[in-house]
Simulated scan of single mutants.
Amino acid sequence: MATPTDPGSVADAQRGNWVDSYAPGWLKPYARLARWDRPIGVYLLFWPCAWSLALAAVRQPANGFDAVALIYCFVGAVLMRGAGCTFNDIVDRDIDMKVARTRLRPIPSGQLTTRNAVIFLVAQALLAFLILIQFNTFTVAIGIASLVLVAVYPFMKRVTWWPQLFLGLAFSWGALVGWSSQTSSIGPAPLLLYLGCILWTIGYDTIYALQDIEDDALIGVKSTARLFGENVKPIVGLFYAATVACWLAAGFVSGAGWVLALGLVPVAAMLAWQVMTLDARAPANAYNRFYSNHYVGLVLTGAILLEWMF
């Protein structure tokens, strides 16, 4: 993270991001609302889609890997992540004004009205629906069902210590979408992948939430970071260990073998590094370990694709 150079830039945006540097003035508030200046959320939403598409190719090698579906999933991830963030900021606009990291977001800072944010939300959701209907009917139904989770997530930090669980339920949904787009069904493999992604999300979002732990305590916002307290490192480590076990099981159920198993070794090593080097008192340390999960997704995608090619 870096200190913003643009007057409207948010605190957790990277210096020199394309929105601050190149986007026209009228677009910047909308781009920041959708987090286009912080694409890590797109990656984390997209990777479960990529994994499930690749596992479906391992399961049905004669059908090959559906690269077109991969592109659809990525565009859908951009749109749905943007819509989810927009909805989240509409719901959390009063809370965001009280948190140092979020008070410069477009709505609490006055860059955008709530009305314009709602219009932008609807536009993103409609475009995402146009992407979704490119798939089979079963996948369309699966995709629409995810809206329930997207809708309830922003409220969970007010009522439960486990908002990260609900984020995991929503953010991992691509594990079901990708597989069903190829098979028109759901089975043990995508369910195991989905479970692993939920556990992974709880782990990395707990790390992310460490950045706000003091402000959250002051205003009464709940999180697993606050719940785990001094035990955050061993508990996140347990979630990550269970994550790798679920992913390995999903691979074996899909028909994968030693290539995927070997590919999970660096994945496990990266997750272990996050836990062992985590400093819960340093927001920049927490953010960097959170961000490194993008590379976890990249390595696992490569491992599954190598399994398919072999």
Rank of each mutant, 00 (worst) to 15 (best):
P4T: 15
S9C: 12
S9G: 15
V10G: 05
A11I: 11
N17V: 05
V19Y: 03
D20E: 14
A23C: 09
L27V: 11
K28S: 11
A34W: 02
A34S: 09
W36K: 00
D37C: 10
I40Y: 09
G41P: 01
L44E: 10
W47Q: 08
C49I: 03
A50T: 07
A50M: 11
A50I: 01
A54N: 03
L55P: 01
A57R: 04
P61M: 03
P61R: 01
N63M: 12
N63T: 11
F65K: 09
V68K: 12
V68P: 00
L79N: 04
M80F: 01
R81L: 03
A83D: 05
V91S: 03
I95Y: 09
I95Q: 05
A100S: 15
T102V: 08
R103W: 12
R105G: 09
I107C: 06
P108D: 05
L112K: 03
A117C: 06
L121S: 09
V122P: 02
A125T: 15
L126G: 01
Q134A: 06
Q134W: 05
T139E: 10
I142F: 06
A145T: 02
V148K: 08
V148N: 07
V148D: 06
L149I: 05
P163A: 00
F166G: 05
L167N: 06
A170H: 14
L176T: 11
V177P: 11
S180D: 01
I186Q: 11
G187L: 00
A189E: 02
A189G: 03
I198K: 07
A209N: 06
Q211E: 10
D212V: 01
I213M: 10
E214L: 10
E214G: 00
D215T: 11
D216I: 02
A217L: 12
S223F: 02
S223G: 05
A225E: 01
R226V: 01
E230R: 08
K233D: 07
V236D: 09
Y240T: 10
Y240H: 15
T243I: 13
V244L: 06
V244P: 12
V244H: 06
G251C: 12
F252P: 00
S254H: 13
A256P: 01
L260H: 11
L260N: 10
V265C: 08
P266Y: 13
A268T: 04
M270R: 15
A272F: 12
Q274F: 03
V275W: 04
V275T: 14
M276S: 14
T277P: 00
L278K: 07
L278H: 04
A280L: 01
A286R: 01
Y287T: 00
Y287I: 03
Y291A: 15
H294F: 09
A303L: 07
A303V: 05
L305D: 11
L306H: 08
